[in-house]
Design a protein around this nucleic acid. Sequence first.
DNA 1: TAAATTTCTTAATCATGATTAATTTTTTTC
DNA 2: GAAAAAAATTAATCATGATTAAGAAATTTA
Lengths: 190, 190
Amino acid sequence: MDVNLIAYIKRYIVISETEIDTFQSYLKLKKIRKKEFLLKEGQLCKSRYFILKGCIRLFYIDSKGNEQIIHFGIENWWITDYESLINNIPSILYIQAIEDTELLELPEESFDNLCNEVPQTERLFRKIMEKTYIAIQKRIEYIYSLKGEEQFDLFVSTSPDFAQRVPQYMIASYLGMSPEFISKVKAKKK
Amino acid sequence: MDVNLIAYIKRYIVISETEIDTFQSYLKLKKIRKKEFLLKEGQLCKSRYFILKGCIRLFYIDSKGNEQIIHFGIENWWITDYESLINNIPSILYIQAIEDTELLELPEESFDNLCNEVPQTERLFRKIMEKTYIAIQKRIEYIYSLKGEEQFDLFVSTSPDFAQRVPQYMIASYLGMSPEFISKVKAKKK
DNA sequence: TAAATTTCTTAATCATGATTAATTTTTTTC
DNA sequence: GAAAAAAATTAATCATGATTAAGAAATTTA
């Protein structure tokens, strides 16, 4: 298994070498090229994905036909559509590679087996979810407390490397702003 | 243990009567009156709470001194400040009763013991978190896709009973709007 | 039930940031 | 390296909803 994922797992739970092997046995390496999709609207999402390398966006098409980005995924993030995965309903989301991307795919059936064979898996994903929840709640705080310009500044100062990697219009979409507004904000700084 | 909680748990996991007793042994009934606090800014959050009866709000004070409501909690919801609880840092949040409220308190130390004694607890909370995550992600979708009036209409039509129970200015705060705007929207409907 | 407090409403003004449309710059593809 | 496509910029206009301020209504408390 990838060293990234092993290190990642060990930050959350205690796990033996044998159990790591079991974990590994359920993972499938998957490579997708820039602009390819992991999931499209209407499909059933059946896996969780761990990003080894690359960059992903998760978005939906809003009522005006615009792509609205919900969040990005980069190295060492799990990504999936929980609504489709958990409730077994067709997805309303698209999951697409922004760069050529390498992932480890954990199909939900495998996940269930893994949880039975390596029970700490439950704890691992419980803790990951808690951490993810903290992040998304913080995001809601920022949406309501900061004005557009401040949100953009925060994003750039928190993830300067990432702001470089992703087209500006996608950052605009993620932050719920128009690309024109981002341009205006940047122009003001000069 | 309260029948509400037993029914709730059984929706997520398989659990024996003995295990339910163990679960129960870690819970403390707690009653707080309207306007009392479960948590204040600066304190360490050390428990998870299951709401048996009543209504709770979780909010922070923003840079302008306004109370910004992050979310509400009602019957059959778990409520806590994950950031403080998980990272062991002082909270920036307030958790306050909107009505006289009955809760079951699960201190984090008890939670850890419970997870070891009844391992399905991990699964229970993993699943609760996944469900909660789906809800909060949907909320972000609505924030970005719907204009103020539509968000308010959706809130009222999705939880009409709840909209009755909570003062309008709190709903405004939760939706990130001014109370005056809610008044305007309501006036328009007549 | 009267007084006090809290909540809600109305209306005028103002700020933020969307929209539209045209142009420029950058990146990709052949 | 030229053509095509994608991304970013600029500026004018417009809409949404905040802010301010005052007053009315409802609820709570004494």
